[in-house]
Design a protein around this nucleic acid. Sequence first.
DNA 1: TATGAATGAGAGTTCATTCAT
DNA 2: GATGAATGAACTCTCATTCAT
Lengths: 193, 193, 193, 193
Amino acid sequence: MSQPVMLERIVEAGRKLFARQGFHATGMRDIAKLAQVSIGSLYHYFRSKDELFLAVVRKAFEERLVQARELMRQGLPAPEILRQVLTVYFAGFAKEPETAQLLSRVWAPEDPALWRKLSALLEEYAQAIAEILAEAIRAGAIRPVHPLLAAYALLGMAGAITLRAAQKDAVAEEFRRSGAEELAELAWHALRP
Amino acid sequence: MSQPVMLERIVEAGRKLFARQGFHATGMRDIAKLAQVSIGSLYHYFRSKDELFLAVVRKAFEERLVQARELMRQGLPAPEILRQVLTVYFAGFAKEPETAQLLSRVWAPEDPALWRKLSALLEEYAQAIAEILAEAIRAGAIRPVHPLLAAYALLGMAGAITLRAAQKDAVAEEFRRSGAEELAELAWHALRP
Amino acid sequence: MSQPVMLERIVEAGRKLFARQGFHATGMRDIAKLAQVSIGSLYHYFRSKDELFLAVVRKAFEERLVQARELMRQGLPAPEILRQVLTVYFAGFAKEPETAQLLSRVWAPEDPALWRKLSALLEEYAQAIAEILAEAIRAGAIRPVHPLLAAYALLGMAGAITLRAAQKDAVAEEFRRSGAEELAELAWHALRP
Amino acid sequence: MSQPVMLERIVEAGRKLFARQGFHATGMRDIAKLAQVSIGSLYHYFRSKDELFLAVVRKAFEERLVQARELMRQGLPAPEILRQVLTVYFAGFAKEPETAQLLSRVWAPEDPALWRKLSALLEEYAQAIAEILAEAIRAGAIRPVHPLLAAYALLGMAGAITLRAAQKDAVAEEFRRSGAEELAELAWHALRP
DNA sequence: TATGAATGAGAGTTCATTCAT
DNA sequence: GATGAATGAACTCTCATTCAT
């Protein structure tokens, strides 16, 4: 087989387009075309556009979580972990600009039905972050805050900066350059004991 | 006149529906129906759906800005101002739950054309917040941070919490009760000198 | 009164716009704007858009008829009359390009209801031309042809050339320059005894 | 397969309705219904209503041209060719009344954008007629006239008669019976050496 | 007379989804 | 598994017309 398997091509095409254009501006035809796949095949692998979108988001979240947990395991000092976790979410604009945007877009899905499903995914991710925070609190590495709320706050901060950084002006470039660092600084001050 | 003027009814209906369901899930018919107005009238007052949406968002932002600047003028201590500004953005879920959601939804518009217009509005708002922060920095009330970036971070934090708080479970209720307070605490720690 | 009366301004604006853009592409708003009149006034003078259009066409036809009959009365030789009549229909592109187009557009109204009314007007005009032809036949100035059919044929010829001449290329310019002459030549050969 | 293929059904339905009612009075829904096809299918085969209309017209023109060129090849005497060409354009009201009307309606499209495209098609057709005329002039079969102008004149004549003949009164019936013959006579006199 | 805010039916078009091949 | 022709509900927007002032 000279091409990656169909399923992967579809998800990858979905990731790119959903991130660049959002959910509604991306048509199944667009995804099929970019993935070099027939529309029929899209529906062979995913029951609906919603499910494809959810799969794309889920995958992106999971990749981020795996990376974050990896960092935790290494026993670094708290502020360093924070910096790296944020950097990971913020996500190497160099390598994967689309994913960073995709995650930021997850915040406010416009279709109510989709929202319910997405917010579950988001909660899962936030819960995972919250657990990490809770552990850091128990260890005395950060001050006692509401873990889930702090998790959402961190994700919100990162999302806002990410979306701003995706634009094409001087500010965006500055954010891309120093955003992760500044963000980590803010987060560390917000959480330090 | 027994009813509020048409224009107000339209904007109000738009505010509610856009906030509840997002941009795409809200049809012009829905707005017309809720506003008890003909579709034609919608287009009498607004050139397009985009323009109506922008008007709704602009109004919401402006109201928030006015309130925030009011607080600044009163010369309260920095952490108190921060708390109140966030509370204002967070926005009396009791009184206007929709507006709070609306502003949070502004983050990731799905239509590229709309995005350009919206991000300009958002930038305007963020700039205003940034100015407030810059002044506080000059006054030594908060530590030196990148004002615009910090502004976006604050808005992102507040947006994330707001959206989570709009759901209908126990967590949401908890966030609605103590979210503004916790958020202000986080923000204050992030920014204190 | 410094302006021509309202009714005239309306008809004139209608003539220009209907000729330039056709019936459907011309909105009542456009006419009102060009005539510097309120929409309400349009409906004060004309029951409907159809009626306004018919009035515009009727006026244009009548002007042409008056001119044609004038020529008949002068007792010129048949081919000369023909030339002048065609020139008149063809209509001084220099002076009134719109009217020439307007009359040509009358051929195929797209609304069935409008068509019935328009074709009556057109028939009236064709009948008048036919009478002129019939008289010329009786006088032996032209050969015996079916007068009404010939009238329609002449109008069709002139209409086709007129519309082609209204375009903006070299051919159109040539048609504008020598169209009337060539047309008269063709008509004269077609009808000479 | 018990029905003709979809594309053909669509074009045929378009031909009938556009000819009967004109462009604007014919809705995509009407065409879909007559063709027993879904609206979606219309857009599967044609990018827009304009394109469908142009396809319908193009086909009609091409059929006429093929027939006319066929006649030329048979080496008949000039007046006979003229008669037959006109008969062909005039076009068997018995067999295809709609097409005859359709072609006549092409003269004055009401939408400016559509006009540009249509006039190109019309020019192509007129050019083809003009070439036939030019050849006849070279052969001395007809007198030297401006070929393109004469072509437009012939088409205009035929169009006018055709539209008149499509009505439902005694005159129309007469035109249908003897129109082609009379028209050929007129044309022949106009062009004979 | 004159106005223009208000109306709403209907237009063209899109697009997620289905299903016979 | 794979295809893409076919579907039709739902969308935004237009515009001739009305009528209270």
